[in-house]
Amino acid sequence: MGSSSFFILLLKCIDFLSWPVLALGYPLCASVEAIESDSHSETRNLISYWILLSLIYLFEHAFLKLLQRFQYWHYMKLMMVAFLVTSDFGRAAYVYNQLIKSCIYMNPQTVISRFRSWKNIFSKKEDFKMQAEKYIKQNGTETFEQLLASKV
């Protein structure tokens, strides 16, 4: 009985101490080191790690009520972070490239066209007079008169 309670206490201490050190402390030091060394691959790996860690936090925040019922979530999260951190964050870059990048990659032209359509939705609606003036500037008064005559 005494050894099992000691084991549970040891697990809680490891969870309490290892989470900040493993998930935040070591990657923070490695990020500073990567910035100082100007290594493109290290910086890319670390950015992949920070993106995945943010997604884990967002998932946890979104499903907090459900995860509170699952008592091993903290240990699973710790194992996921340990998996991402080991081997100099190369696994984080691999997971990012295989799972996340394929889901969120968009053509820049598609992003620009979506932004323009959202901009049109949220911009102030123009009245008929402004639309007519634009049409006249683009096509001339004769085509505008023809358009009005065809609609009447």
Rank of each mutant, 00 (worst) to 15 (best):
D38I: 02
S18T: 01
R44V: 04
H74Q: 09
N120Q: 11
Y75L: 08
L147I: 03
L17K: 01
N120D: 14
G25L: 03
A62Y: 00
Q68G: 00
F83R: 08
T141M: 08
R44F: 02
G90K: 13
A149M: 12
Y26M: 14
F7Q: 05
L58F: 10
L53Y: 09
E42S: 15
L64W: 08
Y94E: 12
K119C: 06
L55Q: 11
C29S: 08
I56W: 06
L67T: 05
T141W: 01
Y96E: 03
D88F: 06
K12S: 11
W73P: 02
L11V: 00
F144M: 12
L10F: 10
K134H: 12
I112H: 10
K12I: 06
W50V: 11
L52D: 05
G140Y: 06
E33H: 04
I35N: 05
L78M: 10
N107R: 14
W73K: 06
I121F: 13
S102E: 14
L46W: 07
S37F: 02
L148T: 13
I47P: 00
C103T: 08
T110Y: 08
F6A: 08
F7E: 11
Y105P: 00
T86H: 15
A82F: 10
S4V: 03
M79L: 14
K151Y: 06
S123A: 15
Y72R: 07
S117P: 00
L84G: 01
V111C: 14
A132P: 00
F70H: 12
C103H: 03
S37V: 04
P27H: 07
L24Y: 09
L55I: 02
F115Y: 11
W50Y: 15
N107C: 15
A149Y: 09
S113R: 14
L58I: 09
S5M: 09
V152Q: 12
I51N: 02
T86P: 00
Y26D: 09
L84Q: 01
S150A: 15
W118N: 12
N120R: 10
D38E: 13
L84P: 04
L64C: 03
M1G: 09
L17V: 08
S18E: 08
V95E: 04
W73N: 02
L46Q: 07
Q98K: 07
K137F: 02
L58Q: 09
F115Q: 09
L78W: 01
S31V: 00
K137T: 14
W118P: 00
L78S: 04
K129M: 04
M130E: 14
V81M: 06
N139K: 07
Y135I: 03
S113E: 13
E142G: 00
M79K: 10
A30I: 03
